[in-house]
């Protein structure tokens, strides 16, 4: 029964299972053999710098991109081989909050939240109205039900996007950069919502972010993605230990440490310097 799943149990079957995922755009490899399991009821945070492939990974997990190699399973179903109808059946079981909220600009906030309910359920209008009010109350936006997306702030758009994402009471919620572009207080509020949904309703969450404060606040486990490779997947405490510890001399650990701490010196910046600047500029001057 669901009752026992208060704490993520490692032996449980993963709800999301990504295996050896490879994605290339033209000749550029964006995901280079990513493997990741997410277990019921946990919050998995995927971190990484810009262009590390974390958004691409997310898009594979929601079935909006096709990989070159590997598989993505949600609830045991391999998204890669599903027909559109089957994929849509899976899509009704998860929700996603996009970076900008991605509200439909031609509809009011309330209509945005009602849309999945209108399209995918046989519930009557009154019930749907009540559900829309409940979802908006949950994200603290009940008074905005009749406003158009253009009339509300970025933070409100995000909360409205979250209300729409949870319209069908999904089992998994994906968040794409939930705190990007928000002030610290609004960002903390969104984090609290993520934690409430996971803690009280048992929703499984996958969060893609580069905001470390937020990541450490909400994560049960974390994964660090770099240049299309998953460097490390571990419980939050392990990452906290790396962040708070001294540099070890181990390249990978130090790289993670630099990222977590936001230091301006370390393996990440060293790597950028090793790009053959000297040869490059001498060549411009007519060769050595």
């Amino acid at each position: 029964m669901v009752e026992t799943q208060e704490q993520p149990v490692r032996t449980a079957t993963p709800v999301i299972s990504v295996v050896d995922l490879v994605k290339r755009f033209d000749s550029k490899t964006v995901l280079d053999g990513v493997t990741l399991d997410v277990f019921p009821g946990e919050t998995m945070v995927i971190m990484g710098g810009s262009g590390c492939g974390k958004s691409t990974l997310l898009r594979h997990m929601i079935g909006s991109m096709q990989p070159n190699e590997g598989s993505v399973r949600l609830f045991g179903e391999d998204l890669v081989v599903l027909s559109e109808d089957q994929l849509n059946a899976v899509r009704k079981r998860f929700g996603i909050l996009f970076q900008s909220g991605a509200l439909f600009n031609s509809m009011t906030v309330g209509e945005n939240v009602a849309l999945p309910l209108n399209e995918h359920t046989d519930l009557d209008e009154a019930t749907i109205d009540i559900m829309v009010r409940i979802k908006l109350e949950l994200v603290g936006l009940r008074e905005a039900v009749d406003l158009m997306p253009a009339e509300i702030s970025g933070g409100m758009k995000k909360r409205a996007g979250l209300a729409r994402a949870i319209a069908l009471d999904p089992e998994i919620l994906f968040y794409d950069e939930p705190s990007a572009g928000l002030d610290p207080v609004t960002s903390a509020e969104i984090d609290q919502l993520i934690m409430d949904l996971t803690g009280k309703l048992g929703v499984t969450s996958v969060v893609v972010t580069h905001e470390m404060d937020s990541a450490f606040r909400i994560a049960d486990r974390m994964g660090m993605l770099d240049k299309g490779r998953m460097l490390k997947i571990a419980p939050r405490a392990e990452f906290e230990a790396i962040r708070d510890g001294e540099a070890t001399g181990d390249e990978m650990t130090d790289l993670i440490r630099q990222f977590l701490r936001g230091d301006s010196e370390g393996p990440i910046t060293d790597r950028r310097r090793e790009t053959g600047y000297e040869e490059d500029i001498l060549e411009m001057a007519g060769g050595p």
């Binding site: 359920t121 519930l123 009154a126 019930t127 749907i128 009540i130 559900m131 409940i134 979802k135 009471d169």
Partner: peptide, 10 residues
Amino acid sequence: DSSGVASLVK
């Protein structure tokens, strides 16, 4: 789920 709650609200 919330549709059940909505039913009770009704």
